[in-house]
């Protein structure tokens, strides 16, 4: 029996724009995933704790404030510290090309910049989820 992929869609940092996150959340739901949406202005600690308690397969981070180079690696570091190694972490938002290699080095599997079709995100998640979806 198949189980749905569980995704935490989280917005770290202080920007108050969650339209992108909501569009993604909706698209993932349409693709049959269970999306846990936690709302605006989450600290890295809150995001990691939610990811653990919800036992998600994917953490999808959305950020527009420009603080991605600080916040994204903090989240992957905290996950690592808690021994969580089977969660796929991806990011999206207004992120300059030149920052992407740095983020990937720090455990963000993929970065989706504005204009990415939601289907590309869905496809990426389906192919890269670390835990078996078939039981």
């Amino acid at each position: 029996m198949e189980r749905p992929i569980r995704v935490l869609v989280a917005k770290p940092g202080l920007d108050g724009h969650d339209r992108g996150a909501k569009v993604i959340a909706r698209a993932l739901r349409e693709a049959g995933m269970e999306v846990i949406y936690t709302g605006l202005r989450q600290t890295p600690e809150q995001i990691v704790e939610a990811a653990i308690q919800e036992d998600v397969d994917v953490v999808a981070l959305s950020i527009l404030s420009g603080a991605h180079n600080t916040l994204f690696p903090k989240i992957t570091k905290l996950l690592k510290e808690r021994g969580v190694d089977d969660v796929l972490v991806i990011g999206g938002g207004v992120i300059p090309e030149e920052d992407i290699p740095f983020l990937k080095e720090h455990g963000i599997a993929e970065i989706f910049t504005p204009g990415t079709p939601t289907s590309a995100v869905i496809e990426y998640i389906k192919q890269h989820v670390k835990r078996a979806v078939e039981k």
């Binding site: 909706r26 693709a31 995933m33 709302g39």
Partner: peptide
């Protein structure tokens, strides 16, 4: 699929 949004109202409890 589903969007599970109840956590939004319980943010401070997470930690």
């Amino acid at each position: 699929g589903s969007i599970l949004g109840d956590r939004i109202r319980m943010q401070d409890l997470s930690l």
